[in-house]
Nucleic acid binder design. Sequence first.
DNA 1: CGAAAATGGAACACGGATGTTCTAATACGG
DNA 2: CCGTATTAGAACATCCGTGTTCCATTTTCG
Lengths: 194, 194
Amino acid sequence: MEQHHIATATTESATRARTRRAILDAAVTVLSAHHGASLADVAEAAGVGRTTVHRYFAERSDLVAALGADVRERLQEATVRARVEDGPAPKALERLCLEYFELGDRLMLLFDVPQFLSWAGFEEETDSDRVLVRLIERGQAEGTVDTEADAEWLQNVLWSLLYAAWMQARDYGTPRHTALSSCLHTLRKALAAS
Amino acid sequence: MEQHHIATATTESATRARTRRAILDAAVTVLSAHHGASLADVAEAAGVGRTTVHRYFAERSDLVAALGADVRERLQEATVRARVEDGPAPKALERLCLEYFELGDRLMLLFDVPQFLSWAGFEEETDSDRVLVRLIERGQAEGTVDTEADAEWLQNVLWSLLYAAWMQARDYGTPRHTALSSCLHTLRKALAAS
DNA sequence: CGAAAATGGAACACGGATGTTCTAATACGG
DNA sequence: CCGTATTAGAACATCCGTGTTCCATTTTCG
């Protein structure tokens, strides 16, 4: 239990860690609902003073960058959980889709906030993106995925259908699981080998 | 040629009509590239003074409303051109998709700028939206369109795939016709009766 | 050509978001 | 419990987009 000086340069007090999370979570909610919301809005949603937000993220761009890093990490974890190497490609794609769907608002941000795709460490191609494309290509090689369409295009199709499912749930009030199963149904047909 | 007093309350000088169009067109380009661009940006892109923009559209919201009306009108025309009542539903859907694709940036705005869906005369359901849903339902009745999926969902699928095709062309540099044919290919499979 | 229409540009007032600094109050952890 | 870490809130300077007004200049059109 001799854990006196655990602190390294990158370690944070437990309280600080909690507040930081609160701010990041609130930022996801607020910004995904309305891009260009003010930092005051984020602060309020986080139940925190506006100055406190600035104490953790000096500039707005710092907050955005942190959000980017956060979603990136979760994307990575989701990709691992989906065990993309196991079994036939279509099944793996469905698992991946399911995991991604769970990320909800966080991924919406990735689409909606333009700064993310170019900014914040997303250098055009995320690791997860590459994994997804490779998975599709594996399916095409297996003959279980449509070979008439470009792998990159099919990747975009997957993202788009996910986005559509979220929209369906958010704006039309469709239950999440209903939207998800519609999404998977259509995705299965769209990716199927012709 | 006794056309002296053609002018009614709603008629515009030819010059004014041209500048108005220039501003609207520039606004589409600029705003679809970067939401929240300043009116100065729009003015510059239109090759026009910032004051002139305000002379035509007093407030920002007026410009947005005008853009909304514009895209709405074009959507209407595109729907007419597609002759949705003719022939089997899947074919009609493809024609519709093709017409919509031509609207390009203008429709991108409809997705990206949140103010449009609630604001600017879009009362939740556009006429064109209703036409689309009815067309899908007709296909389901004919047995030529997937009946396992909700018509509303399939409508969203169509929009999403269109959006994906645009993205593919804009961000990945895929030629427009290539993106379009990929889109149609996938859409055909996605909508097909199971 | 000459009057009316249309424009460009400068200048200004205004509001809202941002980022900074300070101080008093509060929560935390040993 | 007490000292320290953490916070809230007010106050302030600043920047940027917006919307308005005014005037000189250019363009259009009869």
